[in-house]
Nucleic acid binder design. Structure first.
Lengths: 223, 223
DNA sequence: CCATTATTAGAGTATATACTCTAGTGAGTC
DNA sequence: GACTCACTAGAGTATATACTCTAATAATGG
């Protein structure tokens, strides 16, 4: 594997683990047992590493959130979309932690992220449309649908912060993909009032799949 | 005004302006034209300043979110609660930006914030109950009501980050209290499906009050 | 007035951070 | 074997950060 890619990989791992703020370029170099000079041969600065990671994140989410076209969606599609989004969020979870500082440090990133959010919101909006076509949720007029999409986005992007701040018992809060996906429970809670009567039961069942266990959750973090 | 209080005041202002990460104790001392030694006479370290600001934040929100007791609520109460919460969020807006790092740096803060969130969620839950008693929203069974409260909390605490990251056009994104309060529009969107038919119109009217203007918004930040 | 205590200045420290510079090394090519 | 060129090491720099220490100055109470 090329050094450049190893830098990206290690950076992502360390950022996810401890946050971008706590990880210096020297840390990254040390982790890879390469010299700082070597790292700076491959990247002009730290912001460039972050930006490249953002591009990968963006590409992945864009791919999975690709417009559902105009065919109606079934319930399994909804579950699949939610899983995909939370997978992306998990893989690049350092990103939404102090995103503001990241954007302050790099105008390209600010512009790119603005567009990215816009696309995500349209995608969610489109998914709502096609879920309505599929008879799963009741159609809503436009200004409302966009506001709903935004709420979904807000819940999704804030769920991790909630888990790591309000919910955490351990000292440096750790997190597992399974816990993260309990965010799907919250999203489905959000959509519940808009589900058509005939789909209410199936959606409730799907939602139950992600219900946060009050029992002991022996979850451990992986990469 | 006592130096200690001036330190807190200036810290809050600078933190809100540029984020805790970007503001060093030297910056704070310089802003007040006092020596670093003087600052450290009044506070053992930076985390102590942050913690004290958290206590103030907590006290304010706790005060305004005090349990509505058992008397039913009217629509004006709902508006009042929302305004109060967003006011608190505004005054201590540095806090929810990289909260995770703040908690990592101070175990007291982590514990305190965990409790604080718990109380906020119960308060929102209680407000839902009393809104139901007041005939404004339809009563919901418990596990659902808590999940709804959590969604409200997620939307509220993430609204500012959304504005400053996705929505911002300016370089260091600035924000006004008025813009922030458009978050109320989102919260009311969230609650809309649970509003009783007879209150639907009044709630829609209230919500319209906070609708984000598509027109030019010449809002400028104040402290 | 004197003694004690609270407050302040200001120079200084140890450490970290992002990043640079120079001098290579090693694999391929002519 | 000389040349190139992508790649790497490692020491080094300027700056910042959180924080300390000493000594001086107010403020206060008896």
């Amino acid at each position: 594997m090329k050094t450049r890619d190893r830098i990206l990989q290690s950076s992502l791992q360390l950022f996810n683990q401890s946050g971008e703020r706590a990880i210096s370029t020297n840390h990254i170099a040390a982790e890879l047992a390469i010299s700082p000079g070597n790292l700076y041969y491959h990247f002009r600065n730290k912001a460039d590493i972050v930006y490249e990671l953002f591009l990968a994140y963006q590409q992945q989410v864009d791919y999975y959130l690709a417009a559902p076209g105009s065919q109606p969606l079934v319930l399994a599609d909804l579950a699949w979309y939610l899983e995909a989004v939370f997978d992306g969020l998990w893989q690049y979870r350092f990103f939404h932690r102090d995103l503001e500082s990241l954007l302050d440090a790099d105008p390209r990133l600010r512009a790119g992220y603005g567009d990215f959010t816009g696309r995500c919101l349209s995608a969610i909006n489109g998914i709502f449309s096609q879920l309505a076509s599929g008879g799963i949720i009741t159609p809503r007029p436009e200004p409302l649908r966009s506001a709903m999409a935004l709420n979904v986005w807000l819940v999704i992007t804030n769920w991790m912060a909630y888990l790591k701040t309000a919910h955490a018992t351990e000292e440096p809060a750790v997190l597992s993909l399974a816990e993260l996906k309990q965010g799907i429970y919250q999203v489905l809670t959000l959509e519940l009032p808009h589900v058509t009567p005939e789909y209410r039961e199936p959606v409730l069942a799907l939602r139950e799949t992600y219900r946060p266990g009050t029992f002991c959750q022996a979850a451990h973090p992986s990469t």
